[in-house]
Nucleic acid binder design. Structure first.
Length: 403
DNA sequence: AAAAAAT
């Protein structure tokens, strides 16, 4: 379906075609008319499905239609990470370019001036605020944010926000908002705690389900079964094998990311690590350089596994097996966007075999096992425990840990 | 079990 058929404001259509969008994605096709009709929405959709535009477009559209030129907040978008706030604000800029609708991103970690900049912008008013929970609360507590005219609340990556312990923060923010408002909730997964949150916040929502997250068929996947000390040599080997312009390597800990990036720097790769130990300014610089292809290899924690969109990634390496099958799908979904095809490698050490097997079960298909190059040596056998104990996800019957 | 997020 074309965007033109969705009944959006002409000024928005101009922005859409300036960005080069033409056809709406399935989630956009379903969500946009429903949101314009004023319904609450709960949608399961992951990054790469066009989810952001699916809520930004109708939100901007409604602001344009209301034709209320008062400068107070009309929509609030809450997201889990600072990087995501920045990215959504950038997309907002593009889509709203030919309109008078304004937006501002607010998030922590700035240089001290950023708070006062945000404060004065918020005092003057903006139509749309995009922010991380802690910083939003800080601003709301100080009382200059005019939310009395707010019409719409968006929770993006809601499951991730709950995982990060933001439940109480979300409820606190919501307590500031007018009761009469539209609510849109997006979540990659729909576990019971998300349903509970939805019951608390949404009113008779329509549900949108975008088919469960199977990795794109264009992603060629392979797993290397190896010993832990073979990970660094194999990473070096794979990166040296081919000249690649855009690679993300995911690690499960900050330390593992730092260590690997240090090793790769020794070989003069164009590489940086990104995680929460970096100052916010550094984080943004690294991500910008990577998006602009000034930097070819990014070693990242799960700070980037969800939500962040970079074009033309050729290779994703799971240097560690992600803790959650959904994270695996999110991570490898970074590659093979649009017309390009991509490759995803996963390194599986002995301790990670069961976790990886659980992911294969979630994918409902085994991932082909790559042969280690001779210079790396022999790896162990792939012998995951396939019994019910190691289904890796919820362990309802495990006894409570005693401290 | 680790990551992220307000100062």
């Amino acid at each position: 379906m074309k965007f033109k058929e969705l009944g959006l404001d002409d000024r928005l259509l101009e922005g859409i075609s300036a960005i080069g969008f033409e056809d709406a994605t399935p989630v956009q096709e379903q969500a946009i008319p429903k949101i314009i009709s004023g319904k609450d929405i709960i949608a399961s959709a992951q990054t790469g499905t066009g989810k952001t535009a699916a809520f930004l477009l109708p939100v901007i559209h409604q602001i344009l239609q209301a034709d209320d030129d008062q400068s107070n907040i009309k929509a609030l978008i809450i997201v889990p990470t600072r990087e995501l706030a920045v990215q959504i604000d950038q997309q907002m800029e593009g889509l709203s370019y030919f309109t008078s609708v304004s937006s501002i991103a607010v998030y922590g970690g700035g240089d001290g001036q950023s708070f006062s900049r945000e404060k004065s912008a918020l005092s003057q008013g903006a139509d749309v605020i995009i922010g991380t929970p802690g910083r939003l609360i800080a601003h709301l507590n100080l009382g200059y944010v005019q939310v009395s005219n707010l019409k719409c609340l968006v929770l993006d990556e809601a499951d991730r926000m709950l995982d990060m312990g933001f439940h109480d923060d979300l409820m606190k923010i919501i307590s500031y908002l007018p009761k009469q408002r539209q609510n849109l909730m997006f979540s990659a997964t729909m576990p019971p705690k998300i349903r509970d949150l939805a019951r608390k916040i949404l009113q008779e929502p329509d549900e949108i389900n975008i088919a469960i997250s199977k990795p794109a068929e264009r992603v060629a996947q392979a797993a290397f079964i190896l010993y832990d000390n073979q990970k660094i040599p194999l990473a070096k080997y794979l990166l040296k094998a081919k000249k690649l312009q855009s690679v993300i390597i995911f690690c499960s800990t900050k330390n593992s990311a730092k260590q690997l990036s240090k090793e790769l720097k020794k070989l003069e790769f164009s590489v940086e690590d990104i995680h929460s130990d970096l100052e916010q300014g550094e984080r943004e610089q690294v991500l910008r350089d990577f998006k602009n292809k000034k930097l070819s290899i990014l070693v990242a924690t799960d700070i980037l596994s969800r939500g962040i969109d970079v074009e033309d990634i050729e290779l994703v390496v799971n240097y560690d097996v992600p803790n959650d099958g959904e994270d695996y799908i999110h991570r490898i979904g970074r590659t093979a966007r649009a017309a390009s095809k991509g490759v995803a490698f996963t390194f599986v050490n002995e301790k990670e075999q069961n976790k990886f097997y659980a992911i294969e079960k979630l994918l409902e298909t085994p991932v082909p096992k790559g042969k280690l190059p001779a210079s790396i040596g022999e790896g162990p056998e792939y012998k995951p425990r396939t019994g019910s104990r190691s289904n890796g996800r919820k362990k309802y019957n495990s006894r409570k840990k005693r401290k």
